[in-house]
Design a protein around this nucleic acid. Structure first.
Length: 408
RNA sequence: GGAGGAAUAGCGAAGUGGUCAAACGCGGCAGACUGUAAAUCUGUUCCUUAGGGUUCCAUAGUUCAAAUCUAUGUUCCUCCA
């Protein structure tokens, strides 16, 4: 299967700048870029899917460049809802450094920073050399701007698309970069770049976007309990990531396999068949977790995540000794246990519950287990006596949240 | 610069002097059923030493009593120039 058909089958193509691009994609040999702004110090699962497209294209013989927006990150891409809070220059620099390193480790692409060519453009030149190519009418017609007309948009964010357009132009001129790939929310910015290149130097550039990955209710994919799933294993442990994927909705899991893994069409269709026959075995979920974690963190981390998950969710754990537990569960969240405390205090001190009222409610609801036994007594004392072998306390909140306490 | 309007819990949105810790919806969390899925049903969602305490943009006031009235300020929106 050629790359275009493969991307199409995986549902990774949303907007497409030019029908000609299809043949160009299949021919290979294009230099293209994919960008991200340094809004945080780690990429999350949302970046992952789009960067994987770059890997797919690379495998098809294209040449990827990764752009980190050290300049555009200082301005802020307009969100559909509200103005972004500005982040400090120090923070941006820090994030640029973290993201560059992370991207290099995971994907190994050439990395550029648009600060390099944006920093010396002065305001007058900006207006004369670039502003002149954009009519306000054209800019107002962009979806991101339109959606902000009622809410309000500052001149700063309004200007963002020009900055991104000049990135594309610069890369075209200096790196022979002829294509830009991004998420669907970037479509307006991509076309602005294509327009600028056409008007200013009379060349044709290309671009396409991938659709936003959502859950079945339309909510953006990639968050759990309000937190993003980060690619940095210090921020989201492989175990947490395993749990995230294993809990994917049945109705979406095949779609995720297409978008997050390199498995072939035959392999995925085969898994889909088994998934439909025996959904309770969750083969698709397990494969998804395995593929992604192995790609990001390697086989050892995956094996460990799998081992923890199987231990916690199969009751095998109760056959293990305290030493085994400590060695095997290194990724689950730790509890501070010193001396003896009531269960309420333990829940609050470890931010498992937000207040005493909340903690008491959890206990009374039967949501809290210590070493797999439900605790419904709010005065229950946690100390060595309640620990396995006098050292290990495994606390569970709800069905899926485990915490490990070690008594010394 | 001028004229109007708005600001309520994570979000949306009721409430226009006491019966308001503030209806309702969404979201979150938990329980039941399951397969660590979805759907459904139930409970819960400011803090608490369970007596109460602190809230409705901010500050100052009126009142026995303020989310609700007054003044000033802040922010946002609409229209006019």
């Amino acid at each position: 299967m050629n790359i275009y058909d493969d991307l199409l089958w995986r549902g990774l193509i949303k907007d497409f700048s030019d029908p000609e691009l299809k043949d160009k994609l299949n021919a290979g040999g294009m230099t293209f870029y994919i960008g991200t702004d340094p809004t945080g110090d780690s990429m999350h699962i949302g970046h992952f899917s789009s960067f994987l497209i770059a890997t797919r294209l690379k495998k098809a013989g294209h040449n990827p460049i990764l752009l980190i927006g050290g300049a555009t990150g200082l301005i802020g891409d307009p969100k559909p809802s509200t103005e972004r809070p500005m982040i400090t220059k120090e923070e941006v620099n820090h994030n640029v450094k973290c993201l560059s390193e992370q991207a290099k480790n995971i994907f190994g692409f050439e990395i550029v920073n648009n600060w390099e060519w944006s920093k010396d453009i002065n305001f007058i030149d900006f207006l004369r050399d670039y502003g002149k190519y954009f009519s306000v009418n054209y800019m107002l017609d962009k979806d991101v701007v339109k959606r902000r007309i009622d809410e309000g948009i500052t001149y700063t964010e309004f200007s963002y698309m020009i900055m991104q357009a000049l990135d594309f132009l610069w890369l075209y001129e200096h790196k022979n970069c002829t294509m830009q790939v991004a998420g669907q929310d970037q479509w307006g910015n991509i076309t602005a770049g294509i327009e600028l290149i056409r008007k200013k130097i009379g060349k044709t550039a290309y671009g396409f976007t991938m659709p936003l990955i959502t859950k079945s209710d339309g909510v953006k994919f990639g968050k759990t309990e309000g937190n993003a799933i980060w690619l940095d294993k210090e921020k989201t442990t492989p175990y947490e990531m395993y749990q995230f994927f294993i809990n994917s909705e049945d109705s979406m899991v095949i779609d995720y396999l297409k978008k997050f893994t390199f498995l072939s069409r035959e392999e995925i269709e085969n898994i889909e068949k088994k998934h439909i026959e025996k959904p309770e075995e969750r083969l698709a979920h397990k494969t998804l977790a395995k593929e992604v974690i192995t790609f990001l963190h390697g086989k050892d981390e995956y094996d460990n995540a799998l081992k923890i998950s199987e231990a916690l969710f199969s009751d095998k754990i109760w056959e293990l000794s305290s030493t085994d537990i400590i060695n095997n569960l290194k990724d689950i969240q730790k509890l501070e246990i010193d001396g003896s405390k009531t269960i309420i205090d333990v829940l609050i001190d470890n931010s498992i519950c937000s207040s005493k009222r909340d903690a008491r409610e959890m206990v009374l609801n039967g949501a809290i287990s210590i070493n797999n036994k439900k605790v419904t007594d709010v005065t229950y004392i946690i100390d060595k006596n309640s620990a396995i072998d006098g050292t290990v306390i495994l606390l569970k909140k709800g069905k899926k949240n485990y915490y490990l306490g070690i008594c010394k």
